[in-house]
Amino acid sequence: MNLKKIDVNINGKDYCLEVEENLRLIDLLRDKLHLTGTKEGCGEGECGACTVIMDGEIVNSCLVLAFQADKCRIITIEGIEDEIIKNSFIEEGAVQCGFCTPGMVLAAKSLLDKNLNPNEEEIREAISGNLCRCTGYNKIVSAIKKAASIKRGGDSE
């Protein structure tokens, strides 16, 4: 297998790596860099558990090859320093088994980075690529609403 040299910034840290051509981004993150907060669900881009932010956009890291991340900035759940989103998820009870949570938090961050005043429909759209079997989504939607409100400078309601 040919190796490819890539420069990638992950969670603010620069890496210069040699990766196999067929290595998926999720495997680079989990197996090589031990950033195991990113979860693999279906492995075919349907469930969103492996969501990461790549140059500001959310991607399914199971569908991205590691070398495609060359010259990119990646944010994984380990790189989320946003206490407002984290606390809102906890306070609203938006976490149950937790397997979808890293992807949900990243989808929420990606939304709120672009739109601090999303309506209900925009929030549901933003997380519609992330499947959750426990929560029924409503408390995740409430958590994102709450985080948006706090970020706008409002109170928690």
């Binding site: 149950q96 959750c132 079997r133 426990c134 929560t135 029924g136 989504y137 409503n138 408390k139």
Partner: peptide, 10 residues
Amino acid sequence: EGQIDGGFAM
């Protein structure tokens, strides 16, 4: 409430 939401979705 979380159990109600989840059960409803299922």
